[in-house]
Design a protein around this nucleic acid. Sequence first.
RNA 1: AGCGGGAUGGGAUAGCCAGGAGAUUCCGGCGGGCUCAUAACCCGCAGAUCGGUAGUUCAAAUCUACCUCCCGCUACCA
Length: 696
Amino acid sequence: MSSDEFPTERTAVVTCGLPYANGDLHIGHLRGYIGADAFSRALKTLGQRTAYVCGSDMHGTPVAVNAEKEGVDPEEFALRWHEQYSETFPKFSVEFDNYGHTHDETNTELTREIVTTLDEEGYVYEKEIKVAYDPDADQYLPDRYVEGTCPYCGSKARGDECDEGCQRHLEPGEVENPTSSITGNTAEYRERAHKFFRVSEFTDYLTEFLDGLEGTPNARNQPRQWIEDGLQDWCITRDMDWGIDYPGEGADGLVLYVWVDAPIEYIASTKQYTERVGSDAYDWEDVWKDGGDIVHVIGRDIIQHHTVFWPAMLEAAGYTAPRAVAATGFITIDGKGLSTSRNRAIWAREYLEEGFHPDLLRYYLTTTGGLQQDVDFTWEAFQEKVNGELVGTVGNFCYRSLLFAQRNYEGTPETDVSDEVEARIEGAIGEVREAVNDYSLRGIGQATTRLAQFGNEYIQRNEPWKLTDYDPEQAAQVIRDCVQLAKAIAVLFEPIAPGKAQALWEQLGEDSAVGDTGLEAALEQPPRHFDAPSELFEKLEDDRVEELTEQLEAKIDAASDDGDDDAADDAPTDADDEEAGGDADLEPLLEERISFDDFQDLDIRVGRIESAEGIEGADALARLEVDIGLETRQVVAGIKQLHDLENLPGEKCILLANMEPATLFGVESNGMILAAGEEADLLTTHGDADLGEKVR
RNA sequence: AGCGGGAUGGGAUAGCCAGGAGAUUCCGGCGGGCUCAUAACCCGCAGAUCGGUAGUUCAAAUCUACCUCCCGCUACCA
């Protein structure tokens, strides 16, 4: 692992997380692709030999299942998305040097080759595991396509995790009473031999690898604990038709797990690039086999794959380890994550349909917050960025400078740049170089904004519009400097805003592509003549933003309405006693009315607390036995701190009896005691209602 | 529950890894200037005990410990 600064003598590659061929792209996805694109452009500007590659992730169960729902072939299904992605990326100026997909020949071959190597090197073994099998549909059910009962806590659980109960990770075969989540059929377990990769053997290697890994801190820190807890070997095969067949012996009907072939696409896509441009121009083996600089930009949800499985695979197969993993934070709306399935998102398509230039979003996404920070998207913040920084600072400076220059000198005044301005531009170049080495996209963008800011200040301070009359020489000098600043802005802004940078470049009378120039071009003489400029950016009007905000809010409301299935508030786990005191502000009344039928769904009963005891380890939870006439229920309630538990037995209470069971601190809760407010004022009856009486 | 990230003037953010005069930038507020420019731009002012507590240190937003609250991840959501 080399830590010398970019640009290095080596060949580099920048990748971004593979889009999964199963749905539309939204601005959350775009953040990563745009970020990696900007980073790769910046590296190229620095003079680093580099390529930006990616590809669609075609395999995996969701694609297979969704294709089947539509009654099409998985390949056809995935290719459709693949093509849509290929068309969408350029619209955001995300320009890959190569964009392949995991089902293409290059990746298929390379994946087999690598897995074969792993096998030959003794890193793969076979183990019999129990796999759920749907006899009616005649298919095996991998991972979360099984539902059943958690063997530890009795909650409803998915095949791979007790997601609603004790949160435990479940090994295949552990879930009891398995059913297919696709068909609902009862499933059975069958013994099946699967292939495992000995990740556990790489514990020491990975620890050292992480110590030297560059990128964002979360990518280094998050896996550490996981490694300390002990790595489990990794099941790398699945019982499916869709995927890359396992290359070795004795694996009939098994394909490779999607996370095996997906990252290999990084290599395959690089290889395809070399095949297209020739190894003299760019040699993929220099990168992947000979210690190149590999930079992965990913979403922070897939850190584990890129900092544990992937480097272990690379090491085992004799490939180069990544130099950096930069894990982006998420885009949120109203502080909550985007959700594809609930349409809680701003889609790439929607943004384009609004007619906004891609560079606006590129600038917003790269300069708002640090890379690893979550960013809460609002149209107001977007507007603020656009109007304040792009229109007011960058656009305005360039426009006023070039307009002045064109009107008075028909282009660049014939004199040399002043030392002050030259030094300032060199400073900005330094900022960009530093930002790249810090993996700070915001730093790259801000170098430009700050330079434009300096320009505005410089032109204001020197007032060339006054000088033209009594000191024309000095006026020419000032404008000459401003034109140079504009040229530097075009060069430095290209990674973040390639379209606008090119437009500015052309306004300066340049006829090349600004993306092909290096940073040194920022200090080179601009063309003597150029035409009248036009405004680079347009203001976003308030009413437009209001409209967009309203649309977004409506969408978010709709998204949370059909979110009834969330099991989040199944028990009053929170019993925080507001020490702030004072007026507890009441929650607003819900606008939405429910039907009488909805009410009837609640089975609310009169009960009597038989016993109450605190739950060890929990601050707020108490275990109660409640007699509701027909039976006695065990209930967990968040009232430990708020009530004297000894006085509770004998108290009447009101119990929601058909609450779905939940397990808290290992204790099953079979109902919910009703209580009012933060202080958990218990509801009760005041007459002589019998136990078990229904509340209606 | 474990883990990761966050908490900084009215709002949004930087700085923290490599501790050093009470702290960045943007928006907003107040006052002024300019008129080349997209009612843009420039200057100045007001405003923060840097989530809490304790500790290390001559010195802490920055390091350590504990705590509170928010967001997320936990092996197929960027």
